[in-house]
């Protein structure tokens, strides 16, 4: 399966992540403070990461609050 993650195509060969939560584990995003995820332009609330699927071709945005003016 392929996902578009933050504007870049990422291929998954054998172990496809099934949910947003599994994707976060796969990407080793352990520090989750200030992080949010949207799939196909819809924000996925953190409490729903475990039950929200990611499917082939989905556009995933993973953001973090950072320094800004």
């Amino acid at each position: 399966m392929e996902l578009m993650i933050n504007g870049e195509v990422q291929r998954f060969d054998s172990e496809n992540p099934q949910t947003v939560a599994e994707l976060m584990v796969f990407l080793e995003i352990t520090e989750k403070r200030g992080v949010a995820v949207a799939v196909n332009d819809e924000v996925v609330p953190r409490r729903k990461w475990g039950e929200s699927p990611v499917n082939d071709g989905d556009r995933v945005e993973i953001i973090r609050a950072t320094q800004g003016g």
Binding site: E28, R33, I63, R64, A65, T66, Q67
Partner: peptide
């Protein structure tokens, strides 16, 4: 204080960056 929202650098995702200092 203002902060920006930016795509996470997946390769540097173990750092929470500025938030732990100011939040």
């Amino acid at each position: 204080v203002t902060v920006a929202i930016r795509r996470l650098d997946i390769d540097a995702s173990s750092e929470s960056g500025v938030l732990e200092l100011i939040s």
